[in-house]
Design a protein around this nucleic acid. Structure first.
Lengths: 227, 227
DNA sequence: CGGACGTATGACAGTTGCGTGACAAAAGCC
DNA sequence: GGCTTTTGTCACGCAACTGTCATACGTCCG
């Protein structure tokens, strides 16, 4: 699960953020001071850090700087202050984004997902499994994993094979026949089988399955996976 | 120099942004519509794109989506609308950041710098799909795609086959008989059928279908596709 | 000038292609 | 063995496409 660390001294706000993040399917951790947050992050790194600016002891700016010294984690400032100076200073200190309180949880998570698209490639130490990326979609044939905006998506074996086949020919049309032959090994068979599985796959990997962005139909030609 | 493309239909705002960006040492370019912006970006890619949401023709959301299909450039939405829905939708569409007008130029540039730190150094695996070009017209048989000035054009299967056939014999005349045989597999049949489909194709791919520049008729001979 | 021929275009109805939900067989999994 | 999950089949319905026709347009040539 994706973990988020919230560094915020106001207990009420911190708690509210933690609960909201958990509702959204994140593993949320809290810290009341920059020191505590830094320690937590060193001990057990989260995937994102949300940080307030006005903190007792080490303030947010300094906290960001120290965090950045040895961590590439995406940092989002969540502050009540809506001042250009603060925004610029926080971003210069190494923050990736800055939102003003009160913030809608949906906006916050959307910003986290947007950051993840960018942060993906900066995973240096992690196991080097080839990953095919299509916008917010990631397919790792080797690892047998599919992710949308970083969160794993459960697909069945057939769906996975189908997806890999399409991913490995990214941007190219594959006819139902080709898919039937490559995924199922059928030289002959009902092409509607492909439709059904594509439909099911769409339900899982597309944000709006009715308007597919990545797994698109080319009427009369076949299917194709695109960015 | 770092180039920024500003897609914004309000002349005053666009100009103000362009001037402010130039003051900050960027090379700034403007576009009044999404179509124009997409074209500009294809022709001569900028390092960042700023885009408004409310645009005539293709709106900002769709513009972002189309841009993202084949470009990894950092995109920042600059909109007057401060609504969670819009923010989430824009980020999901592929934008990297969202700021609300009016925006301080210092904040904007700070956000651009923050984005640059994250901007992908290595593009994700992406084999290029072969494309046949005829001026502003592009045909990609493998991808099942047709574009005019970079924007995708929806054509039907028969139209697509017809176009591919003509594209693969670029510059040479193909008689109605030849087309009938190669596209439809008819040894015999009504040659008017070809006319109709050529006509429909023209409506879609020619800027001025009445005066075709690429898909031309050679009276008494047949049709030909030229650049 | 006018007729003949070749081409363009709009309308229309039959057909096709595709998405979807339902369902039963098959395969895993306790 | 009983349960859940996955898989393949089917049928329905909508939307899009196709081919045909009638008509309009334009061009060539007598």
């Amino acid at each position: 699960m994706t973990a988020v660390l919230v560094i915020e001294d106001d207990d009420r706000i911190r708690l509210a953020l933690l609960l909201a993040l958990e509702d959204e399917g994140y593993e949320a951790r809290g810290a009341a001071t920059a020191e505590e947050g830094l320690r937590s992050q060193r001990r057990d790194p989260a995937d994102y850090v949300l940080v307030d600016l006005m903190l007792p002891g080490i303030d947010g700016f300094e906290g960001i700087r120290q965090l950045r010294r040895d961590d590439d984690v995406p940092i989002v400032v969540v502050s009540a202050r809506d001042d250009t100076h603060d925004i610029v200073a926080a971003l210069e200190a190494g923050a990736d984004d800055y939102v003003v309180k009160p913030v809608a949880i949906k906006e916050l998570t959307a910003r986290l997902r947007a950051l993840r698209r960018r942060a993906r490639t900066v995973a240096p130490v992690e196991e080097s499994v080839p990953v095919l990326a299509f916008g917010e979609l990631e397919v790792s044939p080797e690892a047998g994993e599919v992710r949308r905006s970083g969160t794993p998506v459960a697909v069945t074996r057939t769906e996975f094979r189908l997806l890999c086949e399409l991913a490995e020919h990214a941007g190219r049309v594959l006819s139902r026949q080709q898919l039937l032959s490559r995924v199922w090994g059928y030289d002959t068979g009902d092409e509607r089988l492909v439709d059904v599985h594509v439909g099911r796959l769409r339900q899982k990997i597309e944000l709006d399955p009715a308007n597919p962005r990545h797994l698109v139909t080319l009427r009369g030609l076949g299917y194709k996976l695109q960015r």
